[in-house]
């Protein structure tokens, strides 16, 4: 009885074609991607039928956590004249100026390194009295990780507060820090941003869909007090409805 001989085939698969496909896919993703910016809290925005696209430049984004903490992001023009880095430094100067008017006994000031660090931040939001200490972390080893921890509320030091202080009761004569920041953003040299904020497209509120109305109302009320009556709410696209 003769045995059936099974031919031994090589298991070598030609991966060239596969490689071609993956490189194509990779190119596609590299070209289309816009990176998610790191945020101190993750929120799921509510769905809406509105199809208006969000403005990417010249916008101040107010990130609201369900607990009522607030962080800001400022995206400026793409032009060199009003670049992000330049305007950030100016914003910090302006807000310090406004803050010092009402806190004459405890003024804040920032040195060149701290300003430099601020211009590189994504979302920001610590009380101004702690801002200097926060920005100085950038020069320390592992400083960026420490800053992220601070903003995310995971700092081991309980005195390190994250979120811009905001109050329910507010008036134009006695601004809280959140209002100071918004005012400062309106006063920077970037005329495009100032115009966008006037039209309402320049201020965007990003909040989680389960945030209570109490908190949203507080933010809206604070904006109204400083005559920022128009603004936009960030939403996700709702499918199905008209």
């Amino acid at each position: 009885m003769g045995r059936v001989k099974i031919a031994r085939k090589s298991t070598f698969i030609d991966m060239t074609a596969m490689s071609d496909v993956t490189v194509l896919l990779l190119t596609f993703f590299m070209l289309t991607s816009t990176f998610l910016s790191k945020e101190p809290t993750t929120v799921i925005t509510p769905a809406s039928v509105s199809t208006e696209k969000v403005q990417e430049t010249n916008v101040v984004q107010v990130l609201v956590s369900p607990k009522g903490q607030i962080w800001l992001t400022m995206n400026n023009d793409t032009s060199a004249q009003w670049s992000n880095a330049k305007m950030r430094v100016e914003l910090l100067d302006k807000v310090a100026e406004i803050y010092n008017e009402s806190h004459k006994n405890k003024p804040v000031s920032f040195n060149a390194q701290q300003k430099q660090a601020f211009s590189k931040l994504g979302a920001f939001g610590v009380p101004l009295s702690q801002m200097g200490e926060f920005l100085s972390l950038a020069d320390e080893p592992e400083g960026l990780t420490k800053m992220d921890q601070w903003l995310g509320g995971e700092d081991p030091n309980p005195n390190h507060k994250s979120g811009i202080p905001i109050t329910v009761e507010n008036s134009e004569d006695n601004l809280n820090e959140f209002q100071m920041w918004i005012k400062a953003a309106r006063q920077t040299d970037n005329a495009n941003l100032a115009q966008a904020m006037k039209d309402g497209a320049g201020v965007a509120i990003k909040a989680d869909q389960n945030t209570s109305f109490e908190i949203i109302h507080m933010v809206m009320d604070n904006l109204q007090t400083i005559k920022q009556n128009k603004f936009t709410l960030l939403t996700a696209l709702k499918a199905g409805d008209e």
Partner: peptide, 10 residues
């Protein structure tokens, strides 16, 4: 997906 916005005026 880019976020959408809803403009409100108070």
């Amino acid at each position: 997906i880019k976020s959408q916005t809803l403009t409100i005026a108070l």
